Simulated assay, not measured.
Amino acid sequence: MNKRFLLSIACFLLINLSVRAGRVDTIQVESKAMHKAIKCVVITPDRYSTAASERFPVVYLLHGYSGNHSDWIRKAPELTSYADRYGVIIACPDGQNSWYLDSPVNPAKRFETFVTGELLPYMDANYRTQADRQHRAITGLSMGGHGALYLAVRHRDLFGQAGSLSGGVDLRPFPNNWDLKNLLGEEATNQSNWDTHSVINVIDSLQNGDLRLMVECGTADFFYEVNRNLHQKLLQRAIAHDYIERPGAHTWDYWRGNIEYQLLFFRKGFPEEK
């Protein structure tokens, strides 16, 4: 076959793929609660720029401890294609090792307030979102998995779906890890803080049907046991959820390989346009 013809085909495919890739913006959202600007990556699907009247569901995608707002797009660049495939806006805020909490001991860490009270209104005011709970989902990895479930359960008026990848869904077994004592105080003298900020206890307020839930964890992950405990508690309380465990560790190979399943889960849960 003619080499020039093959080159033309290759160029066409590259151009076509690039046209169908979503757009990536890095924005700064002012936090009055913390008196500073917080960075956020926003991925819009390709048709966001071509269908001027269309509004889109939003998936809030949270990073893990020691990461930042750019982690997901740097480590999983195919998110731009997923935004196109599933017709969603993806927003990745910087969590600054906060575990996405309003810290009861450090007033400078107010990331629950930031995400729910500042970032969501900013996104709805500045992007063509479908601004209701039925069209919002939240998920994340590790610290972000905890944050996603924690925020969704506590703010069911804002989110209709939530997920977690390798989430730290019970903080209490890890009293000396990941700056948690700087957020919650020493565990021995602040037990109630650790109890009330752990997802496995926060779900006590959850009723079946309040949220569509998807929880995943690798079987070689150090959070595997706490995720299985969460799954068992949800079963005991008859709360419907999808739970997946498969071979894998606390690695980007696992998260990158599984995030699309969560986006597909959310897409199926968003109401269809009438």
Rank of each mutant, 00 (worst) to 15 (best):
A152M: 03
N176P: 01
R47S: 11
D71T: 15
L101Y: 01
N68S: 14
I259C: 04
D71L: 08
M214K: 11
L120E: 02
L180F: 07
G167E: 00
C40L: 03
L171N: 03
P121C: 10
F56M: 06
P107M: 07
A33W: 05
M123E: 04
P175H: 04
S103R: 11
L211P: 08
Q191I: 08
E245L: 06
L120C: 07
G167A: 02
Q134M: 13
P121M: 11
V29S: 00
R74I: 08
F266H: 09
L120K: 14
N182T: 14
K3H: 10
A148L: 07
L230F: 10
E112C: 06
L7E: 11
L61G: 12
S103Q: 11
M143A: 06
T189H: 09
A152L: 01
Y86Q: 03
S49E: 14
K32M: 00
P121E: 05
T196H: 06
A131N: 15
V19W: 05
F56Y: 15
L7K: 15
H35N: 15
A51G: 01
R237Q: 15
R47F: 06
M1L: 09
K274G: 12
I90A: 05
A76G: 05
A33G: 00
R23F: 13
V59Y: 00
Y60M: 14
W72L: 04
L264P: 02
G209H: 10
T26F: 01
R246P: 00
A37R: 15
G67S: 10
F222S: 06
H135T: 08
P104K: 06
H63V: 10
I27N: 05
P121Y: 13
A137K: 09
P271N: 07
M1E: 09
K233C: 05
L206E: 01
S53V: 09
S66W: 04
H135S: 14
H197T: 04
G144L: 12
L151V: 07
